[in-house]
Amino acid sequence: MTFLSYLISGISLGSVYAIIALGYTMVYGISKMLNFAHGDVIMVGAYVCFFATFRWNLPPVAGVLLAMVLCTILGVVIERLAYKPLRSAASLAVLITAIGVSYFLQNAAQLLWTSNPKVFTSVVGNGSVKLFGGQLSISVIAIVTIAACIIIMIALTWFTGMTKMGKAMRACSEDKGAAQLMGISVNFTISVTFAIGSALAAIAGVLLCSAYPTLMPTTGSMPGIKAFTAAVFGGIGSIPGAMIGGILLGLIEIFGKAYISTQLSDAIVFAVLIIVLLVKPTGLLGKQVHEKV
């Protein structure tokens, strides 16, 4: 029974990583940059939801929606102001800018909301479902998180595979010049990608803080880095890769904590990443890049 409950919390934590990793991987796919500020957008989303529901007493659904809207705007604005002017700059410059944006968001949050941790109350309450005569108890938030992850995965698969905009995104990630010649506006497509990634970050922030209720300006950074790891693990640029990478990472982390060592669990996570990359440098589902001459 304890194994089963570890399994479920692993999948649940992994679902949060997966949702965050989707943002990393989609943005990387289209603009070939690592948006290290992505983790901090999660934190902003959680704060917005916190204030909406606990200070202004809005219903939780409204809080989540408000967080999504504001994070979407934040993501698009960050891209326009910080990354767009560097579209043709060296990738190192963009990377450093992204780290700068990350620090900016953390410090702005500290200024606005202080560094005192806030206690986030779960948007779905603290209930749990008891199975097997009470032997196995699954928290509602774990169920909601896993369900959200599945819905998001299905929606994104449909979006990128079936819609005109989604296909344009794939076209842009492959060849921006050719996409432009098709009449696709590359700038607009990149904005849409950032918008989707940031809205997902808001959802992830709320789910994360509902399960782990301490909210601080640095709340987003560790999950952000782990989700980035998950994206690389699954093969950066690949949407199913981000999902699988996220879930596996959550499982490794929880089982590592449960059966090996609580203190070493993060080390185990990163050790597994290193091993996977040694064996398969493009990640689990990473595509081999064909350079045609």
């Binding site: 005109k164 076209a171 060849d175 010049g177 050719a178 098709m182 045609k292």
Partner: peptide, 26 residues
């Protein structure tokens, strides 16, 4: 005014049909 770029530049990871759909994007 459409251009067929040098070196083919099809979208390699998309299907033939999807490539054509992209041509009609506008």
């Amino acid at each position: 005014l459409a251009q067929v770029p040098e070196g083919r530049r099809v979208f390699l990871q998309m299907t033939v049909q999807e490539n054509l759909e992209m041509g009609a994007y506008t």
